[in-house]
Amino acid sequence: MTTVANGVNVQALLDAREVLKGAPEAAQFTWRASSTWQDGVHSTTTIQNYFGLGEEQSHKRESVFDADHPETFAATDNGITPIEYLLVGLASCLTAGVASVAQNRGIQLRSVTSTVEGSHDIRGILGVDSEVRNGFSGIKVTFTIDADASKQDIEALVAQSQKRSAVFDALTNPTDVTVEVA
């Protein structure tokens, strides 16, 4: 197992798991984003600070994300559409999970790629048909993984990654969302 190098510090994760078993309050994190309208349907969202392990924390640097709509929506296309950010979140979360589980199971990865497709009937957001939902009607993720493992073990990596994924859970299960005007 020590010869496997996927670059994930699994020991730190396992240690954290042990510590947090006895300290559920330290496990309470708050992730934050701040968004500003630019023009049209273009906005920028910045992320730097979050709360966790009982105190304020900060990323090494601020990240800025542009969101807009494409020209097919008669918009300026200064960035990806908001719903595409969900695909970014899902793909990166599942990929991180695959790497972590592989490290923990002693599986050396050589390459991990995936494609994520969200099918979306936009009659929902346009108010054409009230029977059509606003969000995705379905999402399909396809992984291609080259690793020192059997097909069955690779399938198990992907399954376990979904089982422990924050974004997979957030997309497949309902979340209580509050939107207020300050």
Binding site: E155, A159, Q162, K163, F168, D169, L171, T172, N173
Partner: peptide
Amino acid sequence: GGLRNVFSL
């Protein structure tokens, strides 16, 4: 919506 994965597991 995670039915497929509990089948796979």
